[in-house]
């Protein structure tokens, strides 16, 4: 099957699936919103499913993430933070090329949490891995430990932060799965943008909820984890990798 034909079929399938599932998805989403007085619970485990065969060669998710979270650079790519990045793969033997978004994989057994000396790096009950910047001392051991290169150290002073996303010099940060949006019952910014302007490759949901699309798809379709050999049980899963 030629790549074009594959892509065409992929788009068609996505459109059909999207049309069929959109209303149901919206309902689930509303049902999942917690009240502000309700703590995050281990009954839920938030996750992402990314079908990279649909991943158009765009950076909609990256732009949306950095816009939502106020992640701005200083024109210094080596020290500027990146919460999500577009990674291009090319098979060494066959030359087969792919593109995927890579961010914090929200592991069940996160190495960053294990190594953090102060417990600033932690995993919330609902599976979201976060940095508590109130207790982060900026040792960067978590950056050493992360298998996905998902963490950034804030190398210089920050201003113009978003009210929901505090960030400051001298601490480590990474994708929060847009925890402030999730707590309001919304989907992460990257997912929203991908489904609006991108390839509709990303699905967000509760991996424990049998009525969630992500649950059903992971149950009925093949998927992989990046560095599955480490047995970290990531919350972010990929298809077509």
């Amino acid at each position: 099957m030629s790549p074009d034909r594959r892509r065409f079929l992929g788009w068609g399938a996505a459109a059909a699936a999207g049309a069929a599932l959109a209303p149901a998805f919206r309902l689930i989403e509303l049902a999942q919103a917690r009240s502000p007085e309700e703590a995050a619970s281990a009954l839920q485990r938030w996750g992402l499913l990314i079908d990279i065969t649909k991943c158009a060669d765009c950076d909609v998710c990256v732009t949306a993430c950095h816009e939502e979270n106020g992640v701005t650079g200083h024109g210094r790519p080596e020290t500027d933070a990146q919460w999500i990045r577009q990674v291009r793969l090319r098979d060494k033997r066959t030359g087969y090329a792919q593109t995927l978004p890579l961010m914090c994989q929200h592991c069940e057994h996160p190495p960053c949490v294990d190594v953090c000396p102060t417990g600033a790096s932690f995993r919330r009950a609902d599976g979201i891995v976060l940095v508590d910047k109130h207790t982060c001392i900026g040792c960067r051991y978590c950056v050493m430990a992360c298998p996905y290169g998902a963490r950034s150290f804030i190398h210089e002073a920050v201003s113009g932060q978003k009210a929901d996303v505090p960030r400051g010099k001298g601490m480590v940060e990474s994708c929060t799965l847009c925890v402030h949006r999730v707590d309001r019952g919304e989907t992460p910014a990257c997912v929203e943008a991908c489904n609006r302007d991108g390839g509709k490759a990303m699905v967000f949901g509760d991996l424990n909820d049998p009525s969630a699309e992500i649950y059903r798809r992971l149950r009925s379709e093949p998927s992989t984890q990046v560095r599955a050999d480490l047995a970290l049980n990531t919350g972010v899963r990929y298809q077509g990798l």
Binding site: P36, A39, R124, A125, A163, V179, D183
Partner: peptide, 14 residues
């Protein structure tokens, strides 16, 4: 807020 995701507004910095 940070650890449990409880976003009560009353004593929030925001």
């Amino acid at each position: 807020t940070m650890r449990q995701g409880l976003r009560e507004t009353r004593f929030s910095l925001k």
